[in-house]
């Protein structure tokens, strides 16, 4: 197995910085893009960044300090749940995009302003 050799070359700070950069890019895409599908892509990037951070902490943090009932694998279970919710959310959001396109002939979220008074 060469997996431990790979894992030894990664530091916690590096993974956290990569996660932060991914989150910032996803935040920018979510706020600034005009296409609804692009906004969804930004949201998925942010969820990925959070998952990466969870995995990094569950790999590196010394869980014996926290007493009984905490195990490193709990971070992996959290990531499983986040991926599940992200998949459900992507399905609903893309169905919404298709439905909005049928009614309004656009998915530009700057032009979907039916509620404007």
């Amino acid at each position: 197995m060469d997996a431990p050799v790979l894992a030894a070359s990664v530091a916690l700070e590096d993974v956290l910085i990569v996660g932060g950069a991914l989150f910032a890019i996803g935040l920018y895409i979510t706020l600034a893009k005009r296409n609804a599908v692009a906004v969804l892509m930004g949201i998925e990037l942010m969820l990925n960044a959070v998952n990466l951070t969870l995995i990094a902490f569950s790999r590196f943090v010394d869980f014996s300090r926290f007493g009984e009932g905490t195990r490193p694998i709990d971070g992996h279970v959290f990531v499983i749940f986040v991926i599940t919710v992200a998949a459900a959310e992507a399905a609903v959001m893309l169905a919404l995009v298709v439905a909005v396109y049928r009614h309004r002939q656009t998915i530009d979220i700057d032009r979907i302003n039916v509620l404007r008074g």
């Binding site: 890019i25 935040l27 920018y28 979220i109």
Partner: peptide
């Protein structure tokens, strides 16, 4: 297309702040 909307500058500032904050805390 993949163009940016009206919120381009505030989004840039906010995500830059988030990135520097996370990097600072991580280091």
């Amino acid at each position: 297309d993949n163009a940016e909307g009206l919120l381009r500058l505030p989004a840039l500032v906010l995500s830059g702040l988030v990135a520097t904050g996370i990097a600072f805390v991580a280091i």
